[in-house]
Computed example of a mutant assay.
Amino acid sequence: MRLLKELAAEGVSPWWAAGPWEQPPVLDAVSCGFRGIRMPFGAPNGVVRAACDSLRESGGFVAFAAAAFDGGDDPAAWVAAARVLRSGVDRPNLLVGVPANRAGIDAVTGCLAEGIGVESTCVFSVRQYRAVLDAQRTGLELARARGVDLAALGAATSCDLGALDAEVNARLDRLSDGAASGLRDTAGLATARLLYRTREMTLACERWQSLRECGARPPMLLWSQTRPEQVPSLVSWNTAHVLTVETAEAAARGHGLQGDTLMGRHEQATRALRLLAERDVDAEAVGEELLRARFG
């Protein structure tokens, strides 16, 4: 698919959001150009294993959510669930998904320290992301001290931009101020730009540079639940789009990519969020509410 090749040329990994089928055609997805896969919750370990194998040669990852049903507020429960999932799939390019609530962020450190790749999900704010980056760095440092091969260890963070935009839009729609309608669909892009800025500034610090010198991969940023028209506006190095086939096809029918849209755009993003705040819509607070609604 042309769009997937264009994204890859810009340093953006297209990931396939696999549907809720018992046997997703992972080989077809890889042959189309997807470089990562997010598996649906509850997929059999054998299917996840096959997905990992299909991407292993190209260096791609498969994300698969863990479930700590009886201890969702306990970091140790999430680490234990990740340990079981990693053992069951038994592939180094598996990323175990944990939520970016307080317990899940603490679990990131424990997972990485044990050599378990991890994806932090449902990040909606810069505050959350800073905490995730701190946990990723600490976990990688512990892994290095234990002799884990950092080059084989993946760390990723995904932001559900679709949910953030939808909730902010709903609040704007309730305002009587007609000018507020012009701010629809601005929160997701602005947040993405600030997350990207946060990552690039953080990775420039001495402790991250030391990890990179030991082979650590820079942590990935994944955009999920995006609309087709958002895809061209979320392009920059070491990011990824988690797309359904339908979204990818619809995005391909739109306008082409226009180069990097995230780097150096933090001032524009700050202004966009300030305009929302002036109409009593705090995007970061909305993100915190979305997180609490999902995980308490």
Rank of each mutant, 00 (worst) to 15 (best):
207 R>C: 05
225 Q>N: 15
199 R>N: 08
226 T>G: 00
176 S>T: 13
194 L>F: 00
204 A>I: 10
202 T>Y: 03
197 R>V: 09
195 L>C: 06
185 D>M: 14
168 V>F: 09
200 E>C: 07
228 P>K: 05
190 A>P: 07
213 E>W: 04
203 L>I: 01
218 P>A: 01
187 A>P: 06
184 R>I: 02
197 R>I: 01
185 D>Q: 12
186 T>S: 10
226 T>F: 05
218 P>K: 08
173 D>R: 11
179 A>R: 15
192 A>H: 01
172 L>N: 05
211 L>Q: 03
175 L>M: 09
225 Q>E: 11
201 M>L: 15
200 E>T: 15
224 S>F: 00
184 R>H: 02
210 S>Y: 08
174 R>W: 02
185 D>P: 13
206 E>M: 07
171 R>Q: 10
194 L>E: 06
216 A>D: 00
177 D>I: 06
196 Y>E: 04
198 T>M: 08
216 A>P: 00
223 W>P: 08
229 E>H: 07
196 Y>A: 06
180 A>H: 04
221 L>K: 10
213 E>H: 02
195 L>A: 02
216 A>N: 04
221 L>A: 12
208 W>Q: 02
169 N>A: 11
166 A>Y: 03
186 T>M: 10
198 T>Q: 13
178 G>E: 08
209 Q>F: 08
178 G>C: 12
177 D>N: 12
226 T>A: 04
180 A>D: 03
179 A>N: 08
167 E>F: 09
